[in-house]
């Protein structure tokens, strides 16, 4: 390092406004003391939310990966043994990937990471909820009957429809005969 470089930085080291305000320093010190006394709770809302969600997610992936407790619809059920094995392998892989991700985020311990994790967990919750809802709702679709109204005159309408039908038939007959000729 050249001597003149040191001269440059010596000048900067001696800048006149270098020192912090005494009032500012005292204020921060007091704030730190007060906050330090308050710091007793270690469980934040994020922790309370994320721990059960993690357990739920792991349980869900484990169930899907091994037991298939969530009865899937017939269309989604796999037919061959090979496909089932493949599914289990994929699910185990997914479970490991997920666990690694969760551990990574936890050990990083960043607020941003926690936020990402919470979003991720909530989307998982939505997915599970949607699956459970889809499995347990009544899927027997009711046969749609024509609506009935007392004010509607079905008999006269039926006669009108028959009349129109007859007209159409006779017209078709005529056109067909004309075509043949």
């Amino acid at each position: 390092m050249e001597e003149r470089d040191y001269d440059l930085f010596d000048a900067l080291k001696k800048r006149p406004d270098k020192e912090p305000d005494v009032d500012f320093s005292n204020e921060i010190r007091q704030k730190l003391q007060k906050t330090h006394l308050k710091k007793t709770t270690r469980f934040s809302i994020a922790t309370i939310l994320t721990v059960p969600v993690t357990l739920a997610v792991l349980l869900f992936v484990f169930m899907i990966g091994t037991g298939q407790s969530f009865e899937l619809k017939n269309a989604a059920q796999l037919t061959t043994e090979w496909e089932k094995d493949l599914t289990i392998i994929v699910c185990i892989f997914l479970m490991l990937a997920l666990s690694s991700f969760i551990l990574f985020v936890y050990f990083k311990g960043l607020t941003k990471g926690r936020l990402v994790y919470m979003t991720f967990s909530l989307s998982f919750f939505a997915w599970i909820g949607n699956l459970v809802y889809a499995e347990h709702r009544n899927i027997d679709e009711t046969i749609v009957q024509p609506s009935y109204s007392e004010s509607y005159d079905y008999k006269s309408k039926r006669d009108n429809i028959d009349e129109i039908q007859q007209k159409q038939d006779s017209y078709l007959m005529k056109t067909n005969e004309g075509g043949i000729k």
Binding site: L12, D17, K18, E19, P20, S25, I28, R29, L32, H36
Partner: peptide, 25 residues
């Protein structure tokens, strides 16, 4: 170490660092 102790030891250094970095009090 207590935070007050850390503050007493290093707050000036941290402030200098921040001032050189931002050039804003």
């Amino acid at each position: 170490p207590k935070i007050e102790h850390l503050y007493d030891c290093y707050h000036r250094d941290v402030y200098h660092f921040a001032l050189y970095y931002t050039n804003s009090k």
